[in-house]
């Protein structure tokens, strides 16, 4: 079983085999709600623009499982949502990423790389942890996806080499991507 055995649907409804991405370095992200934490969209786009010529792709999987729960009242959380993320990397069809209804791809990814905790230094960590404790204490248990913008880094051979929580900003992943390119 490898990442290349999975078939997913694009946001246009077209079936796409992940085997099409063989030989590329991939960052698979649950992009979610189009609200809150949206700065990461911009940052991801910057990573994509910087590295795509060297064989890097970002695969975004929108999911509404976390949509209703905005973490705290962080200044970055605005009271509106954007339908067009303004990104040019591949966005796939909406689907679940955690629990029994999770897409098989995300079950596989979370089996390969478990939860190692949030980055304590990130300003949103405290609010996010509190929001989860209050609303979804069960989300904090186990290896499932905790929140929007969990990122999995895949090497050119399809190995899941790292998992970054929502509290790791895309810019901090750049060095890890460069190592694989």
């Amino acid at each position: 079983m490898s990442i290349y055995d999975f078939t997913v649907k694009t946001n246009k409804g077209v079936e796409k085999s992940l085997a099409d991405y063989k030989g590329k370095v991939l960052l698979i992200v649950n992009t979610a709600s189009k609200c809150g934490f949206t700065p990461q969209f911009k940052d991801l786009q910057e990573l994509y623009t910087k590295y795509k010529e060297r064989g890097f792709e970002i695969l975004g999987f929108p999911c509404n499982q976390f949509a209703e729960q905005e973490p705290g009242t962080n200044e970055e959380v605005q009271s509106f949502c954007k339908v067009n993320y303004g990104v040019t990397f591949q966005i796939f069809a909406k689907g679940d990423v955690r629990g029994e209804t999770a897409q098989p791809l995300f079950k596989y990814l979370t089996e390969q790389k478990g939860f190692q905790g949030f980055d304590e230094k990130h300003p949103i960590t405290k609010a996010l942890t509190e929001a989860l404790q209050n609303n979804f204490p069960e989300y904090l248990e186990g290896d499932g996806i905790k929140w929007n913008f969990t990122k999995f880094l895949i090497d050119r051979n399809g190995n899941v080499v790292a998992r970054f929580e929502p509290t790791t900003v895309p810019a901090d992943i750049a060095k890890d991507i460069e190592k694989l390119l």
Partner: peptide
């Protein structure tokens, strides 16, 4: 608005 936009639902 669009489907799945929590702020839209709040409005």
């Amino acid at each position: 608005s669009f489907e799945g936009c929590p702020w839209c639902d709040k409005v």
